[in-house]
Amino acid sequence: MNRKRIARVMRERDIRGVTRRKRHSLTRPDKKAKPAPDLIGRDFHAERPGIKLVGDITCLPTAEGWLYLACWLDLATREVVGYAMADHHRAELVVDALDMADGRGNLEPGCVIHSDRGSEYTSTQFRDRIRQLGLRSSCGRTGSCFDNAAAESFWALLKEEIGNRI
């Protein structure tokens, strides 16, 4: 059988192929804020825990609506040292996750906190909190998922494990 016959039979029986939903990016750069320099430079290895963290936000569909999850991964152990969940993706979400990472992750002074250039990570609230904790902020380039590949890889694995629940 050729593809035209398959298409005709599918049309007659109202059969449609499964298509993936369109992907939406959460990264919205803050036009006013100057982003931090890239201190990691795609080197996603750390000699010891508490010196390099990478973070990102993702959205997960639930029966009640979208859930936003922010996390911080330690590059030495690949463990999630801080996370926060909410029904929004404002700056306080990543600040709450960073506070958990600070409490649980034994972060050294001057620890590099790497993220993308989303408005949550370039916000005054987030930068003030990094300064208060004595940490250093780092951002990848705009539109380059490879600059935050460790966090993106974690989200891909998480979403593959939980599957599509809706």
Rank of each mutant, 00 (worst) to 15 (best):
R13W: 00
T142W: 04
R42F: 00
L107S: 04
K22M: 04
R48W: 02
T142G: 10
R165Q: 15
V9M: 08
Q125W: 04
F126H: 06
R48F: 01
N106L: 06
A149F: 02
G17A: 13
R117F: 02
G17Y: 08
H114E: 07
R16K: 14
H88A: 11
G118Q: 02
V112T: 14
L53H: 02
D74W: 03
V54G: 01
H88P: 06
V9W: 06
S144A: 10
D128T: 06
H88Q: 09
E47R: 05
D96Y: 05
T19K: 06
P35D: 10
T124Q: 12
V18H: 08
L26P: 00
D128W: 01
K22C: 03
T77A: 06
W72F: 15
C111D: 00
G65P: 07
I113C: 00
S25I: 07
I57P: 00
L75S: 03
V9A: 08
D43S: 02
E161P: 09
A46C: 06
M1S: 14
A150T: 07
G65C: 09
E120G: 02
K34S: 13
A151T: 11
P35V: 11
G163T: 14
R8L: 12
K22F: 03
A84S: 15
R131L: 05
C139Q: 15
K31P: 07
A7V: 05
K34E: 15
D38T: 12
D56A: 09
K22Y: 03
M1P: 13
L157Y: 12
I162N: 10
L73H: 02
G17N: 07
Y121N: 11
E12I: 00
R141N: 14
G41S: 05
N2L: 11
E47M: 04
N2H: 14
V94N: 02
R90L: 11
E108G: 01
V80D: 03
L107E: 01
L73N: 02
R131A: 07
K159E: 12
G143C: 07
D14R: 07
S25P: 03
L158E: 09
R16P: 00
G134D: 04
A36S: 15
E79I: 03
G163W: 13
L53Y: 07
T19L: 04
D56P: 05
C71P: 00
A151Q: 13
D116V: 05
T62S: 14
E161D: 15
Y83I: 02
G50N: 06
V94W: 03
R127T: 14
V9Y: 04
L158Q: 10
F146P: 00
R127E: 08
L157N: 15
T124Y: 12
I15T: 03
Y121V: 10
N2V: 11
V112Q: 06
V54K: 03
L157E: 12
L93C: 07
Y68Q: 09
Y121S: 05
R42Q: 02
A101E: 02
M100L: 09
T122G: 13
P37I: 14
G110A: 05
E152P: 07
